[in-house]
Structure formats: C-alpha cells, structure tokens
Design a protein around this nucleic acid. Structure first.
Lengths: 226, 226
DNA sequence: TTACTTACTTAATGTTCATTCAGCAAGAGG
DNA sequence: CCTCTTGCTGAATGAACATTAAGTAAGTAA
C-alpha cells in the first residue's frame, strides 16, 4: 500500500530519489480526493481519520492540519463533487441522468459515497443533513423542468395541475426519477450482476414521461387485472 | 426520562407499586423493539449499546445478556420485522406496495431504520450486507411476478424477453419499483412536506405497467422532444 | 429448604478515536 | 543569512465503546 516508508525520519543514508518527494501542488486536494474514496468505501461514521491518513502515509493530525475537523472534511468532500459535476439544465438533463447512471456503474467509489451518505444524512443531527436536503430540493426542481420540457407544451398544463396530495404530476415524476436512481445505486452496490442502472433509469424516465403524456383527467388509469 | 430510579438498589422504604415492576413476558422482545427504534433514529454505526440501554433504564451489559453482541442484536432486529410483515404475493402485491408506502409515512422510525440500514449495508464488511442482498433478490422476484400478473397474459411474452442488458423488462420494472420506494424514503425523511410516498409509488407502478403493455419490439419509444 | 433460571449490576479491560499542542523540517522570498 | 509559510510529526488527552467476568437479587420448581 505504501510506496515510500511512512516514517517521518528518512533513513540517514539516502533519500528516495524519484517517487513524489513532496508536491508543491495543493496537498489539500489530494487529501480531499482520498477522503472521498474512503468515505465512499466505508461510510462517514465508520471511517476514522486514521483510515484516511494511512492511505496518504501521514498521521491523523496531518489531516486535521488542513481541515479543522472530521465534519469539516466531510462537507468539503461534498462541496468538491458539487462544483465538479455541472448538470445541464433543461431538456437535455434527462439524457444526462441516464449517462450519469452509466458513468456511476463504472465508479463504485463515488456511487457508494452518495448512496451511503444520503441515507446516513437522514439520521438525527447528521452533519450533511442540510446539504442533502437542499440538494434534493434543487434537483427536484431541475428534473421537474426537464420533464416538462420533454413531454411537450401540449401536456404541460395537465402535468402542472396539482393532485390531491398537493403536488403536480411533473413534481411527482421528478421525485420518482431521483428516487429510482438513488434506490438503484443501493441495489447495484449490493448485487451488480442483477441490476443495470442505466437501463432501468431510462425505463423509468420513459415510462413516466409517457404516463404524463397519456393521462387525461381522473385518477390512475389502467384496468386492474385480477 | 426514567419513571423509576435506574439505580440497582431500590430505596429501602417502599417499592413503586404500579409502574412495571419487572415483566415476566419476554424481556427480549422489549429490548428488540427499543433497539429497532434507536437504530432507526441514529443508524447502526452511530448507535451505542449505551443508547439503547439508557432507553430501557438498564446498563449496556444488561442488553448483552440477552444478545451476545451488538451485531447479533442488529440481525435480530432485522429478522423481527421480517417475520412481522408478510407480503401478499401475486397480483395483489403491487397494491400492497402502495399501502406500505402509505403506512411508512405514518411510521418514520421504521422507515428510517430500513432506509438508513440498507444503504449502510452497502459499505465494506457490514454485518447486514448479506441480509439485504438476499432481501432484494427475493423482493425483485416477487415484484416481478406481480408485474407480470398485472400487465396481463397478452404482454407476458414481451415482458419476459431479455433486452441487451440481459434482464427482462419485467425484471427491470421490478427493480425500478423497489428502487423508487427506497429512494422516496430518503427524500421523504429529509423533507416530508415535499414528498408524498404513496402517490409517487402509485405513479411509478402505473407508469411502468403501462409502459410494459405499450412496448412493441425495438428500443425506447417516444419521440424525443427537442 | 434447595437448586435453578432469569435478569440484571458493577467493575474492569483494551480499543479506537477525534482533537490539541508544541515543535521540526524544508522550501520561498527578502 | 533570516524569516515566513506550508506541511507535517509525536505525544498526550480524554472520551466513547464493545465486550468480559463475576457477583447479586428475585422469582420458579422440586
């Protein structure tokens, strides 16, 4: 796991010549990326600063030199990915979601990070709770817009008419799409063979879009087969 | 928080007459229910035996007298709910899922327990990992059957024809329904006002069932609105 | 009464952990 | 050469925890 010896005192005889003596470039960023990976693999509560530090061949105190506390490190990790991944808004977003699902299937680490943290954030007094709440609020609004764009103007009014639960079909569809994507991640992490995230994401989007186009007034259609 | 003094030595003068002196009935069950609640509120990693013990006005060692370890306690909690909640198989199941979503909205505790634990179980070496993997495998199969029942025999063949990803549409739909339900729970826990789990669950099921009925050969239909 | 079981308690043990503090080393700028 | 900044180390602290072991108290069965 370690290319160079982790001990602070280098052996008096010779310096290791080539392998990364100490980079000038932001050490902070490397720590951030490492932390993201370890949080992803183990969850936040289950990860110690020592775990992260060991991966970097430094001490826990070394990590805290850059980030004041473990919580601070977490929020920094979340904000990193936030600025890292600009989603296209408008009509193209739905396709982007499928692409994202595809890309996630190639990066279990990042996928696990968000799947685990988002659920973990729903526990009492979790440091990332506000962050995820806000994130979902924004995403729902964006996906809702994308759905409205996709179904076309002739169905827009219907999709914007609130149902008995106080939400519009477009809003519900957006909620559903995001929910499905999140849920897929958990199932996929547990059993990759049985779940194709991209295919199912596409299916859900298609089905919901078709549904919003089809609905004419009234409640849930479709005869219930005995 | 405590009706009677938690100290072992009761005050010499008198016994508290009415309030639960010590029940003959399975103490184990009460501990199990309490553990479920606390795990639900705080997650597994973030919950100490002391937390659970305090709620019961006993010591951590008292809890371990009934369950050998914290992990054993967790699996017992999971199996409890397992036997508790028999799902109807076959056609009726899809309606049962909507009902379940409705019922979950009334019980944040239980909902949080599964939402948090299922995601947490996707981390490395989590004690509940196998349990959840098996659970999803079984549920997918059951929901798949229910979907096939619902769409009717005339669409059954199409829905059972594997796509390029190796899974049948019925299987994908089942995966999607379960994923949506799980994802909804997280969003709802974070922001109950913005999410109606039952409505969205119903929407997803309707949309997917309609989609499986509609599809004629080929890829994803529906013209992509620019 | 005696023996057994249930349901604990108290105390100790050994870890793991986040966080603090003081100091050191090495490059950068003057 | 001096000084400042960056990036750490080592050591210590104190808290939180799971788990073990041994003992106690009260009910139950004989």
């Amino acid at each position: 796991m370690s290319e160079t010896t982790p001990t602070g005192t280098p052996s008096p005889g010779g310096d290791p010549p080539s392998p990364v003596p100490r980079k000038r470039v932001n050490r902070r960023e490397r720590i951030l990326r490492t932390a993201a990976e370890v949080f992803a693999a183990q969850g936040f509560n289950n990860t110690s600063l020592a775990d992260i530090a060991a991966t970097l061949d430094i001490t826990p105190a070394g990590v805290l030199h850059h980030f004041g506390s473990k919580t601070e490190l977490l929020t920094a990790v979340l904000e990193l990915r936030d600025t890292n991944d600009p989603a296209p808004s408008g009509a193209g977003m739905l396709d982007h979601l499928v692409t994202t699902a595809e890309r996630n299937a190639a990066r279990p680490g990042t996928t696990r990070l968000y799947a685990v943290l988002s659920a973990e954030s729903a526990t009492a007094r979790h440091p990332a709770q506000d962050w995820f709440r806000d994130r979902y609020t924004v995403l729902r609004r964006e996906v809702e817009e994308a759905v409205l764009d996709r179904i076309g103007p002739e169905h827009r009014e219907m999709a914007n008419t609130p149902g008995p639960d106080g939400h519009t079909p477009a809003h519900s569809a957006a909620t559903a799409i995001l929910a499905a994507m999140d849920g897929l991640q958990v199932q996929w992490l547990l059993d990759p063979e049985s779940v194709d995230m991209a295919t199912v994401t596409e299916l859900v989007i298609d089905a919901l879009v078709a549904r919003l186009r089809t609905t004419e007034g009234g409640g849930p259609s479709g005869p219930v087969q005995t």
